[in-house]
Design a protein around this nucleic acid. Structure first.
Lengths: 153, 153
DNA sequence: TCATTGGGGACTATTTTAGTCCTATTTAAT
DNA sequence: ATTAAATAGGACTAAAATAGTCCCCAATGA
């Protein structure tokens, strides 16, 4: 189904919430309560986001997390890679030397094109877009630019 | 990592091979030998492709499998959905009523935009593209049309 | 000094995916 | 008819990835 992980999905929920709390430091506990996701899980996600420099953390009492950039500078692609590693549909697209499939797999170039297209799509939507009311999002029409190519069924 | 499953990857290898054998009926055994993938696994994949109408099968002696359409009419999107079900990055994008996440998840519309963009990318590459030598594939430049939108890093 | 809060990592449980195997059905050839 | 060669369908097991929890350490403000 080509789906993102549950944790990544949670991450978007958490980050959306933080974006709405514009600039306020949020403790993990607070975010857990607000989202209904358990504290250990929220913590795990927040740690990953700090490592990926999506969030900045402050330790100690009154500590917490803060967005490292404005919501319109944080893309969905960044969030996904923070939690799942590099975005690539196939194993071999990453390792660059895997794919020892006997049967002449010289397909990899094509997967790279696909990867690139998917990456661009994910890079085109930001946290800021995500917290906008739904009506305003049809305008992101550039995303549809790639169609009319082999629209068979 | 947002990756396709191994079986889907195998499927593209198998289908590429069949596309090259233009119009010849192939038995599962033959494809297993040619690709180095085990027979039970190849069979499983072929069955899924028949169900998805990507292949046509003939039973009995001298039976086997045949592409149900010309290679340029079979898209990567079709192959992926044959093996993994509908293409959607999030669970809720499919069920249309999941996502009972307390914290006001009205993000789904945005995922739909992303899903659509990804689907279009996958729909734009066909089996015929895949069996072309790699050089000829840079021209599929329309795929890159969606960039320049939030190209941060 | 102590309560609060994050950091890092180990660990377990769960779910998904991959892979195998068995039995039935179909069909060509003899 | 009988047999051999194929696919169909589904049950089952094994392996891997994901999700989720927990513990102990480090930092910081009151």
């Amino acid at each position: 189904m080509l789906k993102i992980s549950k944790l990544t999905d949670y991450a978007t929920v958490i980050l959306s919430l933080m974006a709405k709390n514009n600039g306020r430091v949020c403790a993990a506990m607070e975010l857990a309560t607000a989202t209904g996701i358990s504290l250990p899980t929220v913590s795990k996600i927040l740690k990953a986001l700090v490592n990926a420099k999506v969030l900045i953390s402050t330790r100690g009492a009154k500590g917490g997390y803060l967005l490292a950039a404005a919501p319109d500078k944080i893309t969905v692609a960044t969030i996904i890679s923070a939690l799942e590693g590099p975005i690539a549909v196939t194993e071999c697209s990453i390792s660059q030397q895997g794919c020892e499939q006997a049967a002449g797999c010289n397909i990899s170039g094509h997967w790279n094109v696909i990867n690139r297209a998917i990456y661009n799509a994910l890079e085109s939507v930001t946290l800021a877009d995500m917290i906008k009311p739904q009506e305003t999002l049809i305008p992101i029409a550039s995303l549809y630019r790639i169609e009319n190519h082999n629209v068979s069924q």
